[in-house]
């Protein structure tokens, strides 16, 4: 039983780390603000939820895992909301939207 618990927790944590890594790559490599926010907003939410579920599985059935799952529900509600707030502020402030550069000479 212990082994199954540890393996499941490890799989969930590794999945969370993978999505953290993809969100970070997106934040570093994408060309403008809105695309970067698109990467971190979705990637970080999924990664945090996966990591918290893994830690709750490792903790077992007690008060601590209930609190960890509460954090997961809170992050699942709060993270998209804060992303929405920042992106709306960016739109209102008139940030430039990135467009693909057209080759010169071609109409």
């Amino acid at each position: 039983m212990e082994t199954i618990q540890n393996i499941l927790a490890g799989l969930f944590l590794l999945g969370g780390c993978f999505f953290f890594a993809t969100a970070t790559v997106g934040l570093l490599r994408f060309p403008d603000f809105f695309t970067r926010l698109h990467a971190t907003g979705k990637g970080d939410t999924l990664a945090v939820t996966l990591c918290l579920i893994g830690l709750a599985i490792h903790s077992g059935l007690n008060m601590t895992s209930v609190k960890i799952l509460l954090i997961a529900v809170f992050m699942f509600l709060a993270q998209p909301t804060s992303t929405h707030a920042i992106s709306r502020a960016g739109v209102r402030c008139g940030l430039e939207i990135w467009r693909k550069k057209e080759k010169e000479g071609n109409p």
Partner: peptide, 17 residues
């Protein structure tokens, strides 16, 4: 005030906070 998304989420979260 803010728009409807932030208002709704705040209304849901504030009692638990």
């Amino acid at each position: 005030g803010e728009d409807i998304i932030i208002r709704t989420i705040s209304r849901m979260l504030i009692p638990f906070i």
